[in-house]
Design a binder for these strands. Structure first.
Length: 605
DNA sequence: GCCGTTTTCGGCCCGACTGTTTTCAGTCG
């Protein structure tokens, strides 16, 4: 079993244990173990089979947890989880996903109302049964009702990274079959949408020709992780994985691969529009080929490029295929040259063991160097995030001193060898408090290269109040970057209400940058927000907010979103080299004052 | 259930916010 699945079982056990009012520290140890399992680079499945003693070397995994992991490998589950599931219901784990719903409420509803699933909860709310319960009232019921609506809107969709990992595994399996030489994800995954409803995969190769594809289809249908087979056709297999993700795999001959890719990539509106244009030119486009209307003769089909080209268009990057003007641009050869992963020179939002990160300052710098970045900023949390051991003024100053040392050391390494240079900037992610003030002093912030101001709490504030708070924070001249300004957290909860247009305008006029968080599981901007930011003239920075060296890899997902917003290299600040980046971040106030002096000087004389 | 030790048991990131209370439990980050 892969690490993520093992971790999920441990998390489920922790959730159930919490509902059962088990020892909170025991619960935490299950969660810690799950985190350790997920972040280790070791393959636990293989380790458990070959060298089980090595499991104990992982921090957070002791004797009991190692036994649990061995049991998971052997039986696919662990005894405690089974025991708890016999007492409670699996659907309670889903109830926990509702915003505002925790283990105590799940237990309460089960014990008093025998409610164990979302439908049951909804019925209980409608019947007004919740309000008789202790600590429950009209407002709480209303909140849950909204939570249910939000959950239903998003359920069944998966984060881009989860879909991509699943796609890579299936592609690996298919490519191991002799005679299949290309597998490409299509659909919303290929378009880079931040959530994916189901997975479309296209495969081709010599064995995918119409008359000999059957054995390859059988092979696909025998993919071991399949939880349930939905359909098996002549060249198509549909199935569901245990995560609930539905996958459609199509095996297609090479001659029509491009047409199929174009067709299954969508979006629907883009395809409708392309076909209308094809018809005007006397062509008809299907998933098999672009053909002449008059006699059905083949025009193009093997690649997307030849299809778009036959229609007089440049090839359109999948991220742009939303019928948002990309066809017109393609016809007039004015499609933007979209930003690429390789354009990014630095990642300026990351955490270390000083607060809630999992790696040290040095490890983060080494990892960034290995990735070829020319700079990073270490931006640990400030004190208001007490759970992360956030830095107060004093510790922040010590933090800066340590970063300066590492920065010096890494530039010396560069001088004494041929290694590439990396700059390490000192930074902080400060909290925007209730009145818009920050939780560290200006004296300390002034010494930072990168100050990111973020809202971490206060989710239920009215729009006006929340907007005012963020606007006030931007007024602080030391705020260089506005962190996750929308508070939008996909699949988990509603965004907090904020007037983005005003915030972006204020950031643009103050010269502060806005951040796009590349981590698919965190707070970020939508492609609409990103387009708005560009239009407002905002500087944009894309960061991974890495809490672990491996999370730096998430940059590629962030880039997909930037591409969907039609952004180019010139639109994104951290494509600049280190010196230019710092120069273009919001200038420090002392520089602004200097500038003001110079201006006055000119006026007088 | 893990960890570390002042070795075999005691401690385990903590503070803000909300909606219910009328002093606090539950949830969240």
């Amino acid at each position: 079993m892969d690490n993520r699945s093992i971790a999920n079982l441990l998390i489920e056990t922790a959730d159930l244990l919490e509902i059962a009012a088990g020892d909170p520290f025991r619960v935490r140890s299950y969660r810690r173990a799950a985190e350790a399992v997920e972040s280790t680079t070791l393959q636990l499945g293989r380790l458990a089979a070959e060298e089980p003693k090595k499991l104990l070397e992982i921090s957070g995994i002791g004797k009991g947890m190692a036994a649990n992991i061995l049991e998971i490998e052997k039986a696919g589950t662990l005894p405690l989880r089974e025991e708890l599931l016999a007492k409670y219901k699996p659907s309670m784990l889903e109830l926990l996903k509702l915003p505002g719903m925790g283990p105590k409420s799940v237990a309460l509803f089960w014990e008093t109302l025998q409610v164990c699933d979302i439908d049951g909860l909804e019925a209980a709310i409608e019947a007004g049964k919740l309000e008789d319960l202790p600590r429950m009232g009209a407002k709480a019921a209303d909140k849950l009702k909204k939570g249910i609506a939000e959950y239903r809107k998003n359920s069944g969709r998966f984060h881009l990274d989860d879909a991509e990992i699943a796609a890579e595994k299936i592609a690996g399996y298919l490519l191991a079959y002799p005679g299949i030489d290309r597998v490409t994800p299509a659909g919303s995954l290929r378009r880079g949408r931040e959530t994916v409803g189901d997975l479309d995969l296209l495969a081709t190769g010599p064995v995918c020709e119409e008359d000999k594809v059957a054995p390859a289809v059988d092979y696909m249908a025998a993919y071991p992780p399949i939880a349930s087979l939905i359909a098996k056709g002549a060249n198509k297999v549909s199935f569901r994985l245990s995560s609930g993700l539905q996958v459609d795999v199509r095996l297609l001959p090479e001659v029509s691969y491009g047409a199929a890719l174009q067709y299954f990539t969508g979006s629907k509106m883009h395809n409708v529009s392309v076909r209308q244009r094809a018809l005007k030119r006397g062509y008809t486009l299907s998933e098999y080929a672009l053909a002449k209307v008059e006699d059905g003769s083949f025009v193009a089909g093997a690649t997307e490029e030849e299809i778009y080209s036959a229609l007089g268009m440049d090839w359109i990057a999948p991220e742009l295929r939303e019928n948002n003007g990309e066809l017109e641009a393609a016809l007039e050869q004015r499609l933007p040259e979209l930003i690429e992963l390789g354009d990014i020179r630095g990642d300026v939002h990351m955490h270390t063991v000083m607060t809630d990160g999992r790696n040290t300052l040095r490890e983060m710098a080494e990892a960034a160097l290995a990735k070829g970045y020319s700079y990073i900023a270490i931006t640990d949390h400030s004190k208001n995030l007490a759970m992360t051991n956030g830095l107060d003024d004093q510790r922040a100053l010590e933090h800066i001193a340590r970063i300066r040392e590492i920065d010096k050391e890494f530039s010396e390494i560069q001088n004494s060898s041929n290694r590439q240079q990396i700059r390490v900037f000192a930074g902080i992610e400060v909290d925007i408090l209730g009145a818009g003030e920050l939780d560290l002093s200006d004296e300390v912030l002034a010494q930072m290269d990168v100050v990111i101001a973020s809202v971490h709490t206060l989710f239920n504030q009215p729009l006006e109040e929340m907007t005012a708070r963020v606007l006030r924070a931007i007024e602080n001249p030391y705020v260089r970057i506005l962190g996750h300004p929308t508070g939008r957290m996909l699949l988990r909860r509603e965004a907090y209400q904020i007037d983005m247009a005003r915030v972006l305008k204020a950031a643009a006029s103050a010269g502060a940058a806005v951040e796009h968080n590349a981590n698919p599981n965190r707070l970020d901007l939508s492609d609409r927000d990103l387009r708005m930011a560009k239009e407002a003239g905002c500087k944009i920075v894309v960061n991974t907010d890495a809490h672990h060296t491996s999370e730096m890899e998430n940059m590629r997902y962030g880039i997909r979103q930037l591409r969907r917003a039609w952004l180019t290299k010139a639109d994104v600040l951290n494509t600049l080299d280190a010196d230019e980046f710092i120069k273009n971040l919001r200038p420090k106030p002392e520089n602004q004052r200097q500038n003001a002096c110079v201006l006055r000087h000119f006026r007088v004389f």
